[in-house]
């Protein structure tokens, strides 16, 4: 009886999930390998002929290898901003948790929450970036991603620092470690699990970011992968196969990350729920 139910409910769920979740992805893949004419019908059927390689080469070559530039830019953007987010976020989370009597604690906590809730003011940000020469530059966008992602990282780090016994700090301090050595040689290595979580969650978020590059990094030389879709949308309006090949290509990095870091992603994203 119970095992029958187990198969019945599970079987139904799998059946439904195929339609709701797998078919849209299958649609992307199948359209990406079709020729231009049969892709234009938007129908969900087996390709009459396979053009995986042709489409791939064509997408990559479009507009002077724009997609290659975009992948390079997005990689630099993701690596640089995630590195900064880890170091800066861990420093704040560490002091915030360890030294609650500091007069800055209340203010810092308030700004962390503000950073989570307040939608960034777009045009004033552009104005500030222009006066610092950061507008339309990749390093400007890197700093933007850091500023917007800090709150979430700080929350994760603060929660994890609380689980590291303070006796460890004291031992290090008695052995003569200054704050920098204490943090970089004692604490940061112990934060490894949460560092992995922050890296994975933030790199997916930043790699998939569309809005911020759209506002703060306009221009053809600076495209990031998400903007290639936007730029190609008009150009590819008649060639769905290439547009979907592009979607397929930029989905691969998150897919790889998901396959390897499934657990950390889920842990990081549910971190808020445990606290309640």
């Amino acid at each position: 009886m119970n095992s029958l139910r187990r198969y019945l409910v599970g079987g139904t769920a799998i059946f439904v999930s195929v339609f709701v979740f797998l078919v849209p992805f299958a649609f992307i893949v199948l359209t990406a390998v079709k020729d231009r004419k049969s892709a234009a019908t938007r129908s969900f059927d087996w390709p009459t002929s396979w053009h995986l390689w042709d489409n791939l080469v064509q997408v990559i070559q479009t507009r002077d290898y724009m997609l290659v530039t975009a992948f390079v830019n997005s990689t630099i953007l993701t690596v640089a901003s995630v590195t900064l987010l880890v170091v800066l976020g861990a420093m704040v989370g560490f002091v915030l948790q360890r030294n609650p009597s500091s007069r800055w604690t209340g203010l810092v906590n308030f700004f962390v929450l503000a950073g989570l809730i307040i939608p960034p003011a777009v045009v004033p940000t552009i104005w500030v970036m222009q006066s610092f020469g950061l507008f339309k530059t990749l390093h400007g966008l890197i700093l933007i991603e850091v500023a917007y992602g800090l709150s979430f990282s700080v929350l994760l780090f603060r929660a994890f620092v609380a689980t590291i016994p303070k006796e460890l700090d004291e031992a290090a301090i008695i052995d003569g470690a200054g704050p920098l050595r204490l943090f970089f040689q004692v604490i940061l290595p112990l934060l490894k699990p949460v560092v992995v979580t922050v890296i994975v969650v933030q790199s997916v978020a930043i790699f998939n970011d569309f809005t911020n590059p759209l506002y703060y990094l306009p221009g053809k030389d600076n495209v990031t992968v998400q903007l290639t879709l936007y730029n190609f949308q008009s150009q590819f309006s008649t060639s769905y196969n290439l547009l979907f090949m592009n979607i397929l290509l930029i989905t691969i990095p998150p897919l790889i990350v998901y396959l390897f870091f499934n657990r950390q992603i889920v842990a990081g994203m549910t971190a808020g729920a445990v606290k309640g």
Binding site: V95, S102, W104, P179, L182, F183
Partner: peptide, 8 residues
């Protein structure tokens, strides 16, 4: 001094 505010 071990948890300096300049870390912020």
């Amino acid at each position: 001094a071990s948890y300096p505010n300049w870390f912020y």
